[in-house]
Amino acid sequence: MAVAPMHDGFLVHKRFRYGWLALLLVGFVAAAFFYRDRLEGINVDLVFGYGLGGLALAIMLLLTWFGVRKRSYAKGAGPLKGWLSAHVYLGIALIFLVPMHGGFVIEPDIHGLAYVLVLITAFTGVLGIAFYGLYPRRVAANRDGLTFDDMVKRMAEVDIEIRGLSPKLSEAANDVVRGEVANLRIGGGVRMLFVKPRNRSRHAQMALHRLAIDNDAARRAEALLERKADVVDRLQRDIQMRSRLRVWLLLHVPLSLAALAVVISHGVGMLVFGLGSV
């Protein structure tokens, strides 16, 4: 349902202020790049090498500073949302600026490595934007007003009730219930980022159903397992989605630091050894 439009996401922040800024920047550089042969009296290598390189490095430093700004809670200019907005759009701009700086040439050396690392970092960031756009509403819908603890508590309540039924259940039914408790996995592991673990509660419920025991306790246990299986589904989806919301940062942050290090080496190298050749 549409809520009154009060919230202003980081993408639309200040009517796409930083999006427009990035677009303008990329447009200007691209125009200059494609008409570089017609620019007279300008040393193209100097401008696109040192000039654009310097600009890209400045942007990278600004993007990395986001990590610091994010954690300086008491002070710091403007809301963090504005910084993220700028971070996102300027980061996307790098995807276009860096190739133009390199003349669309990648070679297997430190310059090429810097090129690749910056691009991969930027793309992991884009992945993050996609996740941020996709998952929050899904997480909320999946939770349906429950907190994580609420869901775990619900599961525990079912467990306690099933345990109470145990004396009234057949050996076979008890085996199914014990197996469920022993094998149930809610989350954990890298695999679950991609595939949801099997819902053992659902399996156990179906196994009980197949046993076709006509007894009140067994039917109650089946109903309880079904309820638990629903919660397990929710929990697994919740963990998967929330993990995805975080895991891309585990790539993005180290890559960005690596990229910055390599870019600085590349820059120092160019200043020391390259300046004479221009």
Partner: peptide, 26 residues
């Protein structure tokens, strides 16, 4: 300076502080 830290520190703009009447009027 700059208002509540929770709102300032929200990276995505999800958190806002408002007078409830503003919401209801909206």
């Amino acid at each position: 300076e700059g208002g509540p830290a929770c709102v300032r520190a929200c990276p995505t703009g999800a958190a806002i502080r408002v007078h409830p009447n503003e919401v209801i009027e909206l």
